[in-house]
Every structure is written in C-alpha cells, then in structure tokens.
C-alpha cells in the first residue's frame, strides 16, 4: 500500500542531533536527509539513519547535482543515488538551482547561475536526465544568492518558472531564500512569490539567517537590516518572524506540503529545535485553515 505523503513541519537531519533523535524519537511527521552524507558510506551514521527510518518517513534533499553547472552530470553518483533513494523509500528528490562544479573542480557550495533564456532548456534537459536516471520526480530549490553572475535576461522568479515548465518538474520553495534575496536586492518578496509556480510546490524549506557587513563579509555586530549590511543564508539562527508569516501565507496557497526546518550552524539542543518546529507548526496550521476555508468557499460558489 502506498504510504501517505508526509505533511506538517519536520526537521532536516543533522549529525549534531542524530543521537538525541534516536534516543527520544520525538513526535515529528518526517525527517529530511541529504543522500550525499550516506551514499558510499558505512559506519555509525548510516546505522543510525536505518534506525530512524523505521520511525520516520524520510524526504531526500541533495546538495551536489550542480543542475546549473557546466560539467557533465556525475553518472556514477546518480546511479548510487537511485539505489539509496530506493532503499529509504523516497518518493522524490530535490536539489538546488545553482552550480557547484566547474572545470572538473567541485566548489562544495551553491553558486549563482545567470538567468538567461538560453540556459532554461539546457538546465531543464539536465533535470529531466536526472529524473530519468533516479526514476522519480525532481524538485528544484530556489537558492539564496548575493550576486547575479553577469547580465540577467529575466528575473529569478521568471527563470524558475520557465525552468520548471520546460523540465515539467516540481518546486522546492525555500521561503527564507526568497526573503533573503528580496531583502538583499530590494524587491517585494510577495510579488516574487506571485510569479513562481506555486502549483508545482511539493515541499518547502525555512531557516534562519544572519546579517553580515558588506565589504568585510564578517558577521555584523548589528543583527538587523541597514545600510552596508546584507543577509547571508547561514541557517545559523531561528527563523525570523517575517519568514514565519510568509510560510503561513504560502501554506494557505499551496495546501499541506511538508515543510522542513533547516539548521546548519549554532545548532543547539534538540529540544530547542523541536520548540521551533512547534512554533512553525502553529503557523502551518493557521495557513492550512485558511487554505481549507478558501477551498470550501471555491467549492460552494461552483454550480
């Protein structure tokens, strides 16, 4: 029997919390994992993951496909990825709309790609190739970026929409990234969100960020917006209130898709993360109530 698709707010699995999760098995609707951390690896963490997989549905989110990259896709890794996804029973896989390798070098970060018309079909072909190889749907994630590499021929939202359309793929909407980019480049995040294909959203991410000083790119002593500061998507602090509000608004529009809280720096106790999950869960529930009400209203006006 097909398992029901997870909904609600879950956690991105990190090794800093894996022991506590195994010990307490707290109530969470799912965990999100990065296959790169487990593929081709044995030992303690895969063993713990196997234990967690008995309790939680696992969603898969990758870091290294370099969908916007210029180097060929790593066929060997894609084959390993498929086996891994089969093993953990992941229904779909997501990765970032960025590049992370060039000229045979792997940069191990999410680098920005140019929003060019000519890139839409090329990247869509790469996404379709990945889908064919891993045998399940792909979702692409909007990344936070700090610089557009060159002259853009369209905006980021339009580019994402065109790539999704051309690849006929899903969208992993990172609400914090949308907020970070809107803040750093000075555009309206809600206008941006109205342009991306929300009907393709299969999952969402939220995370916290930090303010850095422009020029030195050191953590700013003043952790708020202002001249000479930019936001860096560190995943190193709590989700900020405007992003929680945006999450609620997005759930009202998309309905019950799974939302992942990502935390990669300054990771505290599991209990703190679970408390944040509960806060986000309340926003999720409010958004879902609005979604249900709106759906009912539409149904009632239909003849």
């Amino acid at each position: 029997m097909k398992k029901p698709r997870p909904t609600g707010v879950g956690l991105g699995l990190r090794w800093e919390i894996i022991d506590a999760l195994c010990e307490g098995l707290p109530a969470l609707p799912f965990l999100e994992i990065s296959p790169e951390n487990y593929v081709g690896r044995g030992g303690r963490f895969p063993a713990l993951l196997a234990r967690l997989g008995e309790t939680y549905p696992l969603l898969s989110h990758g870091l290294s496909l370099s969908l916007g990259g210029s180097d060929p896709l790593d066929r060997a890794f894609l084959r390993q990825l498929r086996s891994f996804l089969d093993e953990v029973g992941a229904e779909h896989h997501s990765d970032h709309l960025c590049f992370s390798s060039a000229g045979g070098s792997v940069l191990h970060d999410l680098l920005p790609i140019p929003f060019l018309t000519s890139e839409v079909a090329r990247i869509a072909d790469r996404i379709k190739h990945v889908e064919d190889t891993i045998g399940r749907p792909m979702a692409i994630e909007n990344v936070s970026y700090y610089l557009h590499p060159g002259e853009a021929e369209m905006g980021e939202a339009e580019f994402i929409a065109e790539v999704c359309e051309a690849a006929d793929c899903k969208l992993m909407l990172d609400v914090n990234n949308a907020y970070v980019n809107a803040s750093n480049f000075g555009h309206d995040v809600r206008a941006w969100l109205s342009k991306v294909p929300l009907d393709r959203v299969i999952q969402m991410h939220v995370a916290g960020h930090d303010y850095f000083d422009e020029g030195t790119y050191e953590l700013s002593a003043t952790q708020r917006a202002g001249k000479g500061r930019l936001i860096v998507d560190t995943h190193g602090s709590d989700v900020c209130p405007p992003v929680v509000t945006l999450l609620e608004e997005m759930i009202a529009k998309t309905g019950p898709v799974p939302v992942v809280l990502e935390r990669d720096q300054a990771i505290g106790e599991l209990s703190e993360l679970l408390a944040e999950v509960r806060t986000l869960g309340a926003a999720y529930d409010r958004g879902l109530a609005k979604h249900v009400a709106a759906t009912r209203a539409v149904a009632e006006v239909r003849p």
């Binding site: 210029s70 590049f99 060039a102 070098s105 060019l116 890139e119």
Partner: peptide, 12 residues
C-alpha cells in the same frame, strides 16, 4: 554556451 562557461570559470 561559451558565455556561461566563462562565467563559471571566473567564479571558480
């Protein structure tokens, strides 16, 4: 395109 490859190489 050579255009994108050049950009990626410069970023690298």
């Amino acid at each position: 395109s050579a255009r994108v490859e050049a950009l990626h190489a410069a970023v690298r």
